[in-house]
Design a protein around this nucleic acid. Structure first.
Length: 428
RNA sequence: GGAGAGGUCGCAUAGUGGUCUAGUGCGCCGCGCUCGAAACGCGGUAUCCCCCAAAAGGGGAUCGUGGGUUCGAAUCCCACCCUCUCCGCCA
């Protein structure tokens, strides 16, 4: 949720900044009106309540005659308090105010390029590594994975239908190698490793900003729990209500979890292979920090992501999302896009967002500043490795003419020194 | 899933319808005493929201959560959540 104080004090700024991401002026104005009405009603109800409390406190001191009279007065006062102009009305006003409030996305940071959709995104960094040149027609990750025997779509479909995949053999070992490497690199940067729950309470998911727009992406259960689409949601949810000491910030976490997405709005997109599936695994970075540090923390996350991709020797570029392409909770987002030779294109493998106080306000997550003041924290999240997409990119980039795939140096120690992925019937 | 116990201010505890603006102890902060410290004494020490705002101030809500009874609820009633102990089931 955005800062409603800011909206009250400076509505023009909020309208302008949200306008850059496609929020209509009337949506913001509707909230202002609802807020004003609610505040008036709130003041009125509180005044009646104060009066009620005062008269009620005196009851035990009154003589029995006066007491009867006072109690009947209080009964009628309570009727007013609870009636249509009292608390009932207030509850309705509060509800509609909250609904309008929750619908507004986060304010983009000033440096975010303005644009209406992905076509206005800025390429920040061109690939540092040269794009691979092949003397043969490069195969896609799906064909490679199947022929290497590390990817099984067919049997996964038998179990679960479309948009599912299973890793086999070296594919499994490759996943664990990536996970182990990410945890190793990030542990050295003061990230606390965490294996969080993948099912979280609906209200926590709501606080993280994933239910007001895009709720159709979320798998639900019969138990008021929802499946996470990223462990960012789990880690944020875990620290709902937390008050950190300032000295413990930034509080960094590296999480591994399976992620579940319905992909309801992506009809026909990336249907083949493991680029876009209902279930995937991801190592995720998450940090709670001071507001004045979140921009720096966000850049730090981007640097870590670049390093993790460089370690895999996969060419990539960095894209800064424009205002119109930002997720609901994000104030600024960078994507990393890896080179996919079979597509002759870059495909998103990483994303890192500064969500400022949008999520921490509702969770809430605060910290005790050195002067004793209680303040809202900021939250920053970012992909370390999205396993399926990363393996897909790795297969494509490091494929060779004979159908084998070179394993990047950095991963070999985790694989007992193995340097190549080859068909199981070619081994020995 | 079943049985039992419990959830009150940072921690520990008191509180079974109005004297609770939730007491006490510990911790923490400030002041006093002291060369300094300990001890001692005095004062302070939650969060959210509304009004008015420069500040001060006024008001409301919160005793796990949500309902209910009542003029009035930490206290009575109902439902739920969580923790602990045991049983069952299970990886």
């Amino acid at each position: 949720m955005i800062d409603i104080e800011l909206l009250r004090k400076n509505p023009a700024t909020v309208i302008k900044r949200l306008g850059t991401r496609g929020v209509l002026k009337k949506e913001v104005e509707a909230l202002i009106r609802a807020d004003t009405k609610w505040r008036k009603a709130e003041a009125k109800v509180e005044q009646l309540t104060a009066q009620r409390n005062k008269l009620s406190e005196e009851v035990p001191k009154l003589s029995s005659e006066k007491r009867k009279q006072r109690i009947s007065e209080l009964r009628s006062l309570n009727l007013r308090l609870l009636g249509p102009t009292g608390r009932g009305d207030l509850a309705l006003l509060e509800k509609s105010r909250l609904e309008l409030w929750k619908k507004l996305p986060n304010l983009p940071l000033p440096e975010v390029p303005v644009g209406s959709d992905a076509s206005a995104n800025h390429v920040v960094t061109e690939p540092l590594l040269p794009l691979p040149k092949f003397s043969f027609l490069p195969r896609n990750h799906l064909g490679l994975g199947i022929s290497l025997g590390i990817l099984d779509i067919e049997h996964a479909a038998a179990a679960s239908g479309s948009r599912f995949g299973a890793f086999l053999g070296d594919g499994v070992r490759l996943e664990f190698a990536l996970v182990t490497h990410a945890f190793k690199v990030l542990a050295a940067e003061a990230f606390t490793p965490i294996l969080p729950p993948a099912l979280i309470k609906r209200k926590r998911m709501d606080a993280m900003g994933y239910l007001d727009r895009g709720a159709e992406e979320v798998y639900t259960t019969q138990d008021d729990l929802v499946l996470v689409g990223t462990s960012e949601q789990s880690v944020g949810a875990m620290y709902a209500g937390q008050v950190f000491s300032q000295k413990d910030l930034p509080a960094r976490f590296v999480a591994f979890s399976t992620c579940f997405r319905r992909e309801a709005g992506s009809h026909g997109k990336d249907v083949r292979g493991i680029i876009r599936v209902h279930q995937f695994d991801k190592v995720e970075m998450f940090s709670f920090c001071r507001p004045e540090d979140s921009v720096r923390e966000h850049r730090f996350f981007l640097e870590l992501q670049k390093r993790l991709m460089e370690d895999l020797e996969i060419p990539f570029r960095v894209v800064q999302l424009c205002t119109g392409d930002l997720g609901v909770a994000a104030a600024a987002t960078y994507d990393i896009e890896a080179w996919f030779p079979s597509r002759n294109a870059f495909v998103e493998t990483h994303s890192t967002s500064n969500t400022t106080d949008f999520q921490t306000r509702r969770l809430p997550v605060k910290f005790r500043a050195e002067n004793g003041q209680l303040r809202l924290g900021h939250a920053v999240n970012g992909t370390a490795y999205a396993i399926q997409r990363t393996i897909a990119a790795l297969l494509e980039v490091h494929q060779t003419a004979d159908g084998t795939v070179r394993i990047p140096n950095v991963l070999r120690p985790y694989l007992g020194g193995q340097d190549t992925l080859r068909r199981s019937d070619e081994r020995h």
